[in-house]
């Protein structure tokens, strides 16, 4: 006997990742808020339009602490998109959403998204944790192009033009001349940048950057390796 299938509405779930800035409050909150106010006085529009995530990993916060903090930040026109490192048991609806997959690359077990349909043939499958892989570009990167690959290394066979930008989660390898910007190790201080000829406008690893002015003139035009030593960007010639 055949069972007539229920007509289904197609409600689709997609996986998305967005960029947000993570703000990490520290105890005691009153002092931290005072510092924040000082910052806002100097740069009043800094947080306007920026999605902000609260990084709660520095301390054992209580739910009411965080609720109060969210309100305080709201009064300062800082909108919180989500909470990172929060206690899973918090369920207050006034809290910003708890973010679990993504963020800092720590072990965050992925939660299964419950499907709307209660059949066994569930529509939602758990998003697989992203495997690191490289992005290979075999043509030159032209001025104005912006290449972003946060899941691993970026390899360019060719040159990167002035005015072009490469952002990689891992290392950046350029088999050509680097004339633009190379921003490596978004969140990984072990990443390195390699190029055959250094004419770069800006180099950065894990948020620490060096502009062309700061690069030693003896290194311009040479084959170099760039890496991070503590808080300093080190550039050494390879030839």
């Amino acid at each position: 006997m055949t069972i007539a299938a229920r007509p289904r509405h197609s409600i689709r779930f997609h996986s998305r990742s967005f960029h947000a800035m993570a703000l990490a409050p520290e105890a005691p909150l009153a002092d931290w808020l005072a510092e924040l106010d000082a910052w806002l006085e100097r740069s009043p529009d800094f947080f306007v339009g920026r999605p902000i995530v609260l990084d709660l990993s520095s301390n054992e916060w209580s739910e009411s602490d965080v609720l109060g903090l969210t309100k305080d930040l709201g009064e300062r026109k800082i909108q919180i998109l989500g909470l990172e490192g929060a206690d899973r048991s918090w369920l207050d609806p006034a809290l910003p959403p708890l973010l679990t997959s993504g963020g800092r690359q720590e072990s965050a077990p992925d939660r299964v998204i419950a499907a709307l349909d209660n059949d066994d043939a569930a529509a939602g499958a758990p998003p697989p944790p992203p495997r690191p892989h490289s992005l290979l570009l075999d043509s030159p990167v032209r001025s104005g192009q912006y290449i972003e690959h946060l899941q691993g290394d970026v390899i360019v066979i060719g040159s990167v033009a002035s005015g072009a930008e490469i952002v990689a989660g891992g290392s950046i390898h350029i088999y050509g001349t680097l004339r633009g910007r190379a921003i490596a190790g978004a969140d990984d201080p072990r990443a390195r940048i390699f190029c055959r000829k250094l004419e770069a406008e800006l180099l950065a690893i894990d948020g620490l950057y060096m502009t062309a002015d700061d690069m030693g003139p003896h290194l311009r035009g040479r084959s170099v390796q760039v890496w991070l030593d503590g808080d300093s960007v080190m550039v050494t010639a390879q030839d």
């Binding site: 032209r142 001025s143 104005g144 192009q145 033009a161 002035s162 005015g163």
Partner: peptide
């Protein structure tokens, strides 16, 4: 030259 490079990127 830099502007031409940009245009080449747009052509592609």
């Amino acid at each position: 030259v830099r502007d031409s490079d940009r245009i080449i990127g747009l052509l592609d």
